[in-house]
């Protein structure tokens, strides 16, 4: 409860500001309409008219809420108009990218920690890779993969998502695998432990807290990557495609509802990763 209060206060603040901004931004249209009709309109008359426009510049919270409700529960979840359906498509892409990103990040980190050459050659490129804007890269990945004869958008989307999500895993795992101090390494040496045993018994378990900390960042990055992957070149499925359709067909309510669906999805994913992390920490003897 003590944690809920500050969060709810901030939420309340956002809602108030949002309503004020809606009134302000949507008022232009109301005043224009009045001017065209040759009438004047008072402030008190204007405010209600900003609350239920069909194409508002900034839809107020209750309109977005209603549209979100309709999108989520208004039809069968298999319907192409259902946000649940589109969220599922995005979720699938996110998880594929997340998995791919974890594998790539962990394998690269292992190689970098094991081989000095890899540290010197791969690490700088991994950092540079993150400076390339993904929006520029996404269409290229999609084009190239279709050139290579890959059917559908699942794989290119997963690659785009993995491109963003491998990085936090890589950085954390490198740090985690290097976290054991000299004394712990010496101790294993006195047992005559080889590279393999040192990795399995010491480096890998020592890196786990770092790994789980990176997963929360990685899953969010993976979701962003998937949505970006759904934006370009005529995708019709997924929350990203839904947002683009909303904005291109001048239907801001669809765009806003999709945006919020994506935010809810992100929240659920992060909570799920948090649960996995808690479970793993408990297994490893850490409480809390």
């Amino acid at each position: 409860m003590s944690r809920a209060l500050p969060v709810l206060s901030v939420l309340l603040g956002i809602v108030v500001i949002w309503y004020l901004a809606s009134i302000w931004m949507n008022s232009t249209w109301v005043y224009d309409q009045a001017e065209r009709a040759g009438t004047t309109i008072s402030f008190a008359e204007m405010v209600p008219q900003t609350m239920d426009q069909e194409r508002p510049l900034l839809p107020p919270p209750h309109q977005v809420g209603a549209e979100l409700w309709k999108g989520l529960f208004g039809q069968a979840i298999t319907s192409k108009r259902s946000l649940v359906y589109h969220a599922y498509v995005t979720f699938k892409g996110t998880m594929m990218g997340f998995g791919l990103g974890i594998i790539a990040g962990v394998l690269l980190a292992m190689a970098i920690v094991r081989f000095r050459v890899m540290d010197m050659s791969v690490m700088p490129w991994a950092i540079i890779s993150q400076t390339v804007p993904i929006v520029a890269l996404a269409p290229m990945i999609i084009t190239v993969s279709s050139q290579m004869g890959i059917q559908g958008r699942d794989i290119p989307k997963a690659i785009i998502a993995a491109y963003l999500s491998f990085f936090p895993v890589l950085v954390s795992m490198v740090k985690g695998l290097r976290s054991p101090d000299q004394m712990q390494l010496d101790l294993l040496k006195t047992y005559g432990a080889g590279q393999g045993a040192t990795f399995l018994k010491l480096r890998l378990p020592a890196s786990m807290p770092y790994f789980f900390a990176s997963l929360k960042v990685a899953i969010a990055a993976s979701l962003v990557g998937t949505i970006v992957g759904e934006l370009p070149t005529g995708a019709i499925e997924g929350l990203g495609a839904r947002m683009l359709i909303g904005s291109q067909f001048g239907d801001p309510l669809i765009m806003w509802a999709s945006l919020f669906a994506a935010a809810i999805l992100a929240g659920l994913l992060i909570v799920a990763v948090g649960f996995v992390e808690r479970f793993a920490r408990r297994r490893m003897g850490v409480v809390g």
Partner: peptide, 27 residues
Amino acid sequence: YGYVFQAAGLYPWRTIAGNIRLPLEIM
């Protein structure tokens, strides 16, 4: 020989028995 360092250096993710088992597992 067995070596004891200044810090106990027990692995926090292993129980006491698990820590003692460590050299035995490796050997």
